[in-house]
Amino acid sequence: MKRWALAILIVLAAVACAPADGTAIGIVTSIDSAGLGGVRGFILRTENGETLDFTIRGPVALDGDAFPPDHLREHMASAESIAVAYRTEGGLRVVVRLTDASAQDG
């Protein structure tokens, strides 16, 4: 198995530990924020070109290697892939946990 594929499997396994309905990996292309501590959502573009909207509603896990929504812009700046664990509420993808996808490849 190629190294990158193994890394993705590791990431998916890690985010799967959170109570989530799904996971997605991609790069952040837009952030909707009302200020620090006030990220309301973001858009993720997956490797197959799919564009997914995510909503921040309530606490986002910060355990282990997870990072807060306010840190998304650093990953956006370097076009670094992130892994998003999410649950579905009323048709919205609500973020459960954010981790650095490519950082696992080390």
């Binding site: 290697d65 990072f67 807060p68 840190h71 650093e74 990953h75 700046a77 370097s78 670094e80 650095d100 490519s102 950082a103 080390g106």
Partner: peptide
């Protein structure tokens, strides 16, 4: 939050 070198 910069636990890895990928953070600026």
């Amino acid at each position: 939050f910069c636990r890895t070198a990928t953070c600026g």
